[in-house]
Simulated scan of single mutants.
Amino acid sequence: MELLQLNTLQLSDVAYFCNRYPNIDVSYEILNNDNLISNSTVNIKVKLERVNERSESVIASLFPQKREEGWWLVIGDSTTNTLLSIKRLTIQERNEIVLDFMAPTGGKHDYILYLMSDCYMGCDHEYKFSINIQNPINMT
């Protein structure tokens, strides 16, 4: 590998890291999407599936001690810089988490679901979604 100018041991280290770098599939569902009323609870079910093998600890040779992978699931409103729901977790092979928050006033609201690593750069996920909230007065 003259192009990379790495010896065999260095190439082996690169391959080891790449095989364990987190590859997470994310899907989500708004559980009560058809019946969202102002001041009710909005429930978002998030499914996470790790595609590759999980390492015993984070692969970070310059980190001073062993460290476990940590992840944050966050629902935010980027227009107001507000966090609506947050949960810290460790991703196994498969995880299912429900995040919830209070529905705002009536109308359409745009949010972002984030999955962020507290160890690795570049493997974060971001999903935009919208919800339509009805005011209780309009329900009659």
Rank of each mutant, 00 (worst) to 15 (best):
I24P: 08
S57R: 03
V26T: 11
I97R: 02
E126W: 14
W71N: 05
P22M: 07
M102W: 03
M102A: 12
F101W: 14
P64N: 12
K45P: 01
I97G: 02
N138V: 09
L11I: 07
T41P: 00
P104I: 08
D77A: 02
M116N: 07
I133A: 10
Q10K: 04
D110G: 09
E96S: 15
V42F: 05
E53G: 04
C123I: 15
N19V: 09
N138S: 13
T79L: 13
N132S: 03
E68Y: 09
E93P: 07
N132C: 07
P136Q: 06
L36V: 08
Q10C: 00
A60C: 13
V58S: 10
D110H: 14
E96Q: 13
Y111F: 15
E68A: 12
R67Y: 09
Y111A: 06
V58Q: 11
I97P: 01
Q92V: 05
P136F: 03
T8C: 04
S40M: 04
V42S: 08
L84N: 01
L31S: 10
D25L: 15
V42Q: 07
I37T: 13
T140M: 11
D100Y: 06
I131L: 12
S55N: 10
S40R: 00
H125N: 11
L99A: 05
L73S: 05
L9F: 12
N132A: 03
C119G: 13
D118A: 12
H125Y: 10
D25E: 14
S27A: 14
L62E: 10
D34N: 07
N32A: 11
Y111P: 00
L62A: 11
S38L: 05
P104Q: 11
I133G: 14
M121D: 15
W71P: 01
M139T: 13
S78D: 10
T140V: 14
I30Q: 13
L11D: 10
C123A: 11
C123D: 05
R88T: 01
N32I: 14
V74S: 08
I86R: 10
I137K: 10
R88H: 04
Y120Q: 11
P104H: 07
E126R: 15
H109C: 10
E96M: 07
I30C: 15
L36W: 00
T79G: 09
V74D: 08
N35D: 15
S27L: 06
K128P: 04
I59Y: 07
T79N: 14
E2N: 10
F101M: 02
N39D: 14
L4G: 15
N81T: 02
E68Q: 12
G107P: 04
S38G: 08
M139W: 07
N52M: 07
M121T: 13
S57F: 13
K128T: 04
N95F: 02
Q65N: 12
L3F: 14
E96D: 08
S78C: 02
M116W: 00
I133D: 09
S40V: 02
G70K: 01
R94S: 15
R50T: 00
I24C: 07
T82A: 03
V14F: 05
M139K: 09
D34V: 00
N32D: 15
T41R: 03
A60P: 03
R54H: 03
L4E: 15
A103N: 03
D100H: 08
Y127S: 01
G107E: 01
I30A: 10
I137V: 12
R50Y: 03
